[in-house]
Design a protein around this nucleic acid. Sequence first.
DNA 1: TTGTATGCGTTATCAA
DNA 2: TTGATAACGCATACAA
Lengths: 365, 365
Amino acid sequence: MTKEQPPPRPSEQPKLRDVAKAAGVHAATASRALNPDTRGLVNAETARRVLKVAKALGYRPNPIARSLKTARTRTVGLVIPDLTNPLFPPIVRGIEEVLEAAGYSAWLTNTDDDPRREQTLIDSLRSRQVEGLIVATARLRHPLLESLHRQGVRMVLINRRTQEPDIPSVTADDAVGTALAVKHLAGLGHRRIAHLAGPRHTSTGVIRASAFRHAIRDHGLADDPELTVECAQWTEEEGARAMSGLLERGVECTAVVAGNDLIALGCYDAFSRHGLSCPDDVSVVGFNDMPFLDKLRPPLTTVALPHHDIGVEAARMLLECIEEPERHPRSVLLPVSLAVRGSTASLRGSTGAGATAGKARRPRR
Amino acid sequence: MTKEQPPPRPSEQPKLRDVAKAAGVHAATASRALNPDTRGLVNAETARRVLKVAKALGYRPNPIARSLKTARTRTVGLVIPDLTNPLFPPIVRGIEEVLEAAGYSAWLTNTDDDPRREQTLIDSLRSRQVEGLIVATARLRHPLLESLHRQGVRMVLINRRTQEPDIPSVTADDAVGTALAVKHLAGLGHRRIAHLAGPRHTSTGVIRASAFRHAIRDHGLADDPELTVECAQWTEEEGARAMSGLLERGVECTAVVAGNDLIALGCYDAFSRHGLSCPDDVSVVGFNDMPFLDKLRPPLTTVALPHHDIGVEAARMLLECIEEPERHPRSVLLPVSLAVRGSTASLRGSTGAGATAGKARRPRR
DNA sequence: TTGTATGCGTTATCAA
DNA sequence: TTGATAACGCATACAA
């Protein structure tokens, strides 16, 4: 009486019984022969025969049946905000590379950073019996994750560290990255460096902003609160808004450390609107090293994150949590590097962008 | 005796029997009550009670067990070359959007366009009992897909049309896109337009090249075989190589239709190497409208494909194939548009890039 | 070393 | 309208 009855394709696939019958043994024996872990229990000759028959018939064990029996799915859930954010594809590939080699597969879900979708999607993943979760969430506070963790759900966080230290995480070393950016600019002679910070409710936003203050002090540069502006979102629009605000308030600065590459792109927009030239008037450093940044004019200097490795490490760590649950959870910080390109240049006696905004040296057409 | 024995988390999840027991009915009744399709078979009052209990207990049906029984997984396989190609994320999101709404999920696999991986991964997907495949392969000849199709594997092709017309496919209208590009350039006064074609073993490569010839003739432009060059790959390097070759052979042209955006980026490189300026000396049109192309200098004029819609249509079509197998397979061509930006400009009496190569008007520093 | 029996959680068939 | 029962394909405790 079910409405839709799409003819469940006759699963012409041979099943264990077919292999067993063809090999002249019982299904249980075939099962043991086929499974590397139990192959030792079976006569070597018999095992060889079973294996040969299985290959000849093109037998592939049905993972559904196997999962039902073993209560293991060899499946994990990937929870990311948005696959079209170029940050994530390389991470996902790194993850899948490791999972595939280990015989695992992943369900991929996009939350759009919407807490309700997160809840729903994670529920759905759990009901699909995933053995673990890799979660990329920007938000700093995250009751859902904490609750899941307390329930014993195995998970690894990427791209965000949590306040409770006992959820394993894999992140790029944002602090070092920020320090690298500031050091680079300081080395070029910049003394008044601005920071367009990411949202303060995000882990990376907070960490980078804090690292920025530290680096500024370490280098003895201008430690002016006005030089740090928070962007409400990690977007080009917000970057442009923040940068324009800085310029319009007349805050002097000759260089900017942007919270991420999109914010840096927003700076480009603001400069062009205010008739400033990068890097002649202002230098900019981005964060993330998105693809094609080297094609911009000027090519963007940015902190390069090991995206692929983040995925690799996260997957390895999750597999470890799954297969050796007694091991201590740990958090890994991956090294970053600075991709120096055309958006940063040495200071040439300029009085700074703030002072020159509006009366630019090189007005655009 | 199995080696690894990761404590199969005690599945604290309530199961159907728990719900049934708590509702004071038999499991079969609970099952019928819970399933919208069979709910009519059960007393309305009983059904309500079961539903309430299920919600109270937080019951989630186990899709593994259900799949084993019903031989339906509500699962499809996505086979794409490489997720880090910015073409694919929006397509994937479009697909997942539709699948999610229909209660399906997708396994995502990256083939790196390696036939052996394709074979392996598709095998793996099939053994996971996917009900259909969405396949993005560039290659024109594809025995594997043809064989799968003959075996009755439900699938939809994207990004490539097959020679046998009976495999359903969803593609952007490459021919119209190419024509749009040529028309745009012709309208700007260009008469000698080159085409840096994609590899001839790819569907899009061939279709775009052929559409290019047609468009050239339709507009009565220079129909010179020298003006078409094949790139061995869809890469920036190949694009640069092809464009440089054209310039070094002294082939006159004032505009280029690139096979895709990466090839167009290669043109930028070649121009800069040869001291040419785009669009002053040569105009370029790309294909695909990758992200951030508008940030290039000059911003790239390109044929914009409805990536998200391609995914949406492909998923819809696959679901149709699965749920109404008797329906005729069809192929859909999605409309494209031209994103006009800064890399194309009207011809200004130039004698063309070929003639000026090497003695550029605006040498770079 | 192999076979027998059982059960994983669900749905479908049959009988009541 | 509901309950009993079997079965999906496999793995495993137990017996032989």
